[in-house]
């Protein structure tokens, strides 16, 4: 009886293997070489796990490596090794956007698709750059989140980094535009921006001043990872937990305690796993010539909508995931070791 059972099981197993082998996957026979900024960095390992997830679905093989010292020449050595190994697609998170242009062009001359993910390679050295979110998406998503928390009414302010910080100012510009343009936010009273200069005690002080001035403040947006914990601590120290809520771009590890204490319903950062996952799909589609790298081209990736290649500021091509990852009381613990 046991013998028969094992024979049957073995047969079933064989059939399963054969059917798996016959089903042609899109990435079958392709190899992706992933190069990240440095090895031993949890953020990039999370990114690689996104590639691995895609590899299970698409059937490509992957290699990944990064230099220990975040150096440009370390990345060059790895890229050259991958060229010799005959990879079809390179996905690079560059330590030095301009520094890898020459070696990337050598790779492209041999027919290798060169994508950059997370940190770009300059326009002249890449086929496509894949980034988490456009400045507009980052701004608008934070606003949406805090507005929902506030019940779409009450006083709202922003605690930013430095007054000249280009990223933050761009995001704030889009937040302000959205506040003006969108009817849903008409009952929100926007108080403006204060600057904590990415310094813990300064961020704490300006937040305290803000709370003293507007005792009925309801919401704060902190679009800088350095400011987030200071603002949360200030809300906690002032005994305003529950009345004032915040959101922002933060690291999970910085904010886990405050999120669980109810100071923020959700804070955001991009998700490196999704970034790797989409990069793999895009790379395979480009290699199979199902996708051409040009403005307006779109690609279907499971779980994502509206992925479209557009022109980037540096004159190259870029694709945004436009999806930030929320850290909530339920999810934050899973992210603490990664971000």
């Amino acid at each position: 009886m046991k013998k028969i059972l094992s024979v049957v099981l073995a047969l079933v197993f064989c059939f399963a293997l054969m059917s798996a082998a016959t089903a042609e996957k899109a990435g079958e026979g392709l190899t992706i070489g992933i190069v990240y900024k440095q090895s031993g960095n949890a953020y990039f390992q999370a990114g690689v796990s996104g590639f691995e997830k895609a590899a299970e679905e698409l059937g490509f093989t992957l290699m990944h490596d990064g230099p220990s010292d975040s150096s440009n020449d370390g990345q060059e050595r790895i890229i050259r090794n991958y060229i010799d190994l005959g990879v079809d697609i390179l996905c690079i998170s560059a330590n030095d956007a301009a520094g890898l242009v020459d070696v990337c062009n050598e790779a492209r001359a041999q027919g290798i698709i060169v994508l950059s993910w997370d940190a770009k390679v300059d326009a002249e050295g890449r086929d496509l750059d894949i980034e988490p979110a456009s400045a507009k998406a980052i701004g608008v998503q934070q606003l949406e989140s805090i507005a929902e928390t506030m019940g779409y009414e009450g006083k709202l302010a922003i605690v930013s980094a430095g007054a000249t910080a280009p990223n933050q100012n761009l995001w704030i510009k889009y937040i302000e535009e959205e506040l003006e343009a969108n009817e849903a936010y008409s009952k929100i009273e926007y108080l403006g921006v204060v600057y904590g200069d990415d310094d813990y005690s300064k961020s704490y002080d300006v937040t305290k001043a803000l709370i003293d001035k507007y005792p009925d403040l309801k919401g704060l947006i902190v679009p800088t990872t350095n400011g987030g914990p200071a603002v949360a601590k200030c809300i906690q120290d002032e005994g305003k937990v529950g009345q004032i809520k915040m959101t922002g771009l933060t690291l999970a590890s910085d904010m886990a305690d405050y999120i669980k204490a109810g100071i923020a319903d959700a804070t955001f950062l991009w998700n490196p796993i999704e970034l790797g996952y989409v990069s793999a799909y895009v790379g395979v589609a480009l290699a199979n010539e199902e996708l051409t790298a040009e403005v307006g081209a779109t690609i279907e990736v499971p779980g994502f909508e509206g992925l479209e290649i557009i022109e980037s500021d540096d004159g190259g091509l870029i694709l945004y995931l436009n999806k930030l990852n929320p850290f909530t009381a339920e999810t934050v613990d899973a992210w603490v070791d990664i971000l």
Partner: peptide, 17 residues
């Protein structure tokens, strides 16, 4: 030569180690 190798860019942490 490092500048040449890095496609003409120079970083403060070049040649470390």
């Amino acid at each position: 030569f490092y500048i040449g190798s890095a496609s003409g860019t120079m970083r403060a942490d070049a040649l470390k180690g």
